[in-house]
Write a protein that binds this DNA or RNA. Structure first.
Lengths: 212, 212
DNA sequence: CCCTATTTTGACAGCTACTCTCATTTCATG
DNA sequence: CATGAAATGAGAGTAGCTGTCAAAATAGGG
């Protein structure tokens, strides 16, 4: 039964000594996501209703909403966000934190590209095309921004809630969001990690004559 | 009849030789907005339904949607955006464009503060409190970002669609959005134009040891 | 002033995301 | 296996939003 599961959403989540209940929950969660991705690729985002998703995932619509607060959230997992902060904290303290950010983001990009390239592209595509998804992504970016602010505040000895830190982190995160959109608009032809480097250069140095 | 109009939303819109039709449209538009602001102050955003708005504005719900595509749009007029680009283009060409941006944004802040301080605050408040409004605001910011990009591209001789310009403008716009949120979260105690200056400094110079 | 063409409006039906409640089923544990 | 807890499904309800169509208001000309 498990062997016929098509196209896993997530890399083989560690399945150690979890109770049957937990394992089922994970299964349901990925079933809903997989159904959603498949339907969206077939029909597009707007044409895909929660009812269809529920049908294909073989659960009730109620259950879909129990697992994901909104339709947009189904395609925007965000389980990485928390990890990113951890990685930031795990970086050597003497490293310039701009470089820490660069390393972490590069790693995130690499992982996305290696482990689930189609989904990474689909997400970028949805983000560029569907306003609601883009909006939801921005929201989660805002959350990410606050976590990034923690890390930066810690490194720079500032208050997390200072205007300066908040403005700076928000601008960084928003700038990075723009990469994804750019990437999708240009049909994924560019190398995402190169775009990331260029974006980070702009964020660090502004629009200098040097960068193209 | 015009003299009993309560609390105009917008500064006395020029009422020259517009036909009766046009004048009524403007009236309806402001009636809807005024009703919305009033109801939101009484009950909060979520508790305010389109039906209530329609009732108070003495129009049908259909009409409300004919004037504003979404509920969020009723509180986010955005008529200023187009003006901003014009002002940018009207600036002396030899002025450093970062200063142009600063001057324009300062002017926008000043106008908002002088002409409709309550509404400016209400908007900032809603932006901070209501995710849907914040999201919609971000969307319109994204549009603003593209217009800003035009201006900057023109000044710097770059392509409007270059990654660098897009990342930069988006980060600026998002950074500026953050000051509104900061302002609202701190109960509007700060001077908005001072916050703006600080934010623009951060955006220009990054998190240097100089700025507090 | 009236007649006609056009625009604006209201009433209504319909769809879908999302919430809440409650009974039923499924798993955990002793 | 029995008991308690958690997950699910079914159903009703709300609200934002879309689309259609007929009625009302306005513009413009005779």
């Amino acid at each position: 039964m498990a062997s016929m599961t098509p196209a896993r959403t997530s890399p083989p989540t560690d399945v150690p000594q979890l109770g049957l209940r937990e394992r089922k929950k994970i299964k349901t969660r990925t079933a809903i996501r997989d159904a959603t991705y498949a339907l969206i690729e077939e029909q597009g985002y707007d044409a895909t209703t929660i009812e269809q998703i529920a049908d294909r995932a073989e659960v009730s619509p109620s259950t879909v909403f129990r697992y994901f607060p909104t339709k947009e959230d189904i395609v925007l997992t965000d389980e990485e966000d928390a990890l990113i902060l951890e990685e930031l904290k795990a970086r050597p303290k003497d490293e310039p934190w701009t470089e820490s950010v660069r390393a972490i983001m590069q790693k995130a990009v690499r992982l996305g590209h290696e482990q689930q390239p189609e989904i990474t592209r689909l997400r970028a595509h949805l983000m560029a095309q569907v306003p609601a998804v883009r909006a939801r992504m921005m929201e989660s970016m805002s959350v990410a921004s606050h976590m990034l602010a923690e890390g930066i505040a810690e490194r720079t000895g500032r208050d997390v809630d200072s205007l300066e830190v908040r403005v700076y982190t928000m601008s960084v995160v928003a700038g990075l969001a723009e990469i994804s959109q750019y990437w999708a608009e240009n049909d994924f032809q560019d190398d995402l990690s190169e775009l990331l480097d260029r974006a980070l250069d702009v964020l660090a140095n502004g629009l200098t004559p040097e960068n193209t």
